[in-house]
Amino acid sequence: MEQANWRKSRRSGANGENCVEVASLSRVIGVRDSKDPTGEQHVFSVDAMAALFEEIRRGRYDLP
């Protein structure tokens, strides 16, 4: 089994809020809350993450 190397997102809040960690594995990307590293971990295909990032760049999820 491949060992995940988790790293904190550069976009996470500096004061500990909104912290996201990601791990790039062979064929998937793992995502978890850095405040709860033993909690839920979500796994997405590389293609799904690329599509999500593109939608974020286009402003689809911008808050009003």
Rank of each mutant, 00 (worst) to 15 (best):
M1K: 08
M1G: 01
E2K: 11
E2V: 06
E2N: 09
Q3H: 08
Q3S: 10
Q3G: 02
Q3T: 11
A4G: 09
N5V: 13
N5D: 11
W6C: 00
W6V: 02
W6R: 05
W6N: 07
R7C: 06
R7L: 02
K8S: 01
K8I: 04
K8P: 01
K8D: 02
S9Y: 02
S9N: 01
S9F: 05
R10Q: 12
R10C: 05
R10H: 14
R10P: 08
R10F: 12
R11V: 08
R11E: 02
R11F: 05
S12E: 03
S12P: 00
G13A: 10
G13N: 07
G13D: 00
A14H: 14
A14T: 12
N15R: 09
N15C: 04
N15T: 07
N15V: 09
G16A: 10
G16V: 10
G16F: 02
E17A: 14
E17P: 06
E17M: 13
N18G: 04
C19F: 00
C19I: 04
V20S: 03
V20M: 09
E21C: 04
E21D: 14
V22E: 04
V22T: 11
A23H: 08
A23Q: 05
A23V: 03
A23D: 04
S24L: 14
S24Q: 14
L25Y: 10
L25K: 00
L25P: 07
S26P: 05
S26E: 15
S26I: 03
R27M: 10
R27Y: 08
V28F: 06
I29R: 07
G30C: 04
G30R: 07
G30Q: 00
V31S: 01
V31H: 01
D33G: 01
D33C: 01
D33T: 02
D33K: 01
S34P: 04
S34G: 09
S34H: 07
S34M: 02
K35D: 02
K35L: 06
K35Y: 04
P37N: 05
T38R: 15
T38W: 00
E40G: 12
E40V: 13
E40R: 13
Q41H: 12
Q41W: 06
H42A: 10
H42G: 07
H42Y: 12
H42Q: 13
H42P: 02
H42I: 15
V43Q: 13
V43Y: 11
V43W: 12
V43K: 07
F44I: 10
D47R: 15
D47T: 13
A48C: 08
M49Q: 12
M49N: 11
M49D: 08
M49T: 09
M49L: 14
A50W: 11
A50G: 11
A50P: 08
A51L: 11
A51H: 11
A51K: 14
A51D: 14
A51M: 13
L52N: 00
L52C: 05
L52H: 01
L52V: 05
F53V: 14
E54H: 14
E54M: 12
E54N: 14
E54L: 09
E54P: 04
E55F: 04
E55A: 09
I56R: 05
I56L: 03
I56P: 00
R57K: 15
R58D: 13
R58M: 08
G59C: 00
R60N: 03
R60Y: 04
R60M: 10
R60T: 08
Y61D: 02
Y61G: 03
Y61A: 04
D62W: 15
D62G: 06
D62F: 01
L63T: 11
L63R: 14
L63E: 12
L63K: 15
L63W: 15
